[in-house]
């Protein structure tokens, strides 16, 4: 009996792109369950989650020739699942389950405490801003506290809008990992 060889995703994708069904099976079995779980957590519906994952893998097979270019297979597949889940949502095919957390967030952000939360949120914003490099901090604060668009910030600071967009994106991503989605929703409603 030969020892089991563990192929890297990269090596498997390389073989898959040449139509190797064994490579496909290995990839399939490696990821199917985690993708299913990701879909199931959002849809709370076994059948829909399974169908969605099957569609993703079906596309992987159909696009196998291009798959060799994928660098991070896990991220690629989970992004595909997210894309499909959100597509179900906007096509009105997702179960109500998906919307449930939104309800409580709206209550948090519209409720009587929202002014208080806004104040606390500003505290969080400043605290986080202090951890950023100077330029990024400026962009972030101008955007949130002065509510300037990326174009206005670009003009104010005399830098390109593209740079502003990049800096802001990075800052917001970092901020997001500090706070709950509800806070991001409040922030979105401010802008």
């Amino acid at each position: 009996m030969s020892a089991e060889v563990v192929y890297t995703d990269k090596a498997l994708l390389e073989r898959l792109s040449r139509g190797d069904n064994n490579a496909y099976e290995t990839i399939y079995r490696r990821y199917v369950y985690s993708l299913y779980v990701a879909a199931y957590r959002r849809l709370n519906d076994r059948q829909q989650a399974e169908d969605l994952v099957q569609d993703v893998f079906f596309r992987v097979w159909n696009k196998r020739e291009e798959m060799a270019q994928v660098d991070n297979l896990s991220a690629y597949l989970h992004t595909a699942v997210r894309y499909e889940v959100l597509k179900l949502v906007t096509r009105r095919k997702a179960p109500l389950y998906f919307f449930e957390p939104f309800e409580s967030m709206l209550m948090e952000s519209d409720g009587p405490d929202s002014r208080l939360m806004a104040k606390e949120l500003l505290g969080l914003v400043y605290k986080y801003a202090d951890t950023l490099p100077e330029k990024r901090k400026q962009v972030f604060l101008l955007h949130i506290t002065n509510r300037l668009s990326t174009r206005e910030i670009a003009e104010t600071l005399g830098i390109s809008q593209k740079t502003v967009q990049n800096q802001l994106g990075t800052a917001l991503n970092g901020f997001r990992s500090h706070v709950s989605p509800a806070i991001m929703l409040i922030l979105a409603s401010w802008m």
């Binding site: 889940v85 939104f102 967009q165 901020f175 997001r176 709950s180 991001m184 922030l187 979105a188 401010w190």
Partner: peptide, 15 residues
């Protein structure tokens, strides 16, 4: 907007 992008991604991750 960037905030909305962050929100949608955070909402998705929330699960």
């Amino acid at each position: 907007t960037p905030e909305e992008v962050s929100f949608v991604e955070a909402y998705y991750k929330y699960f």
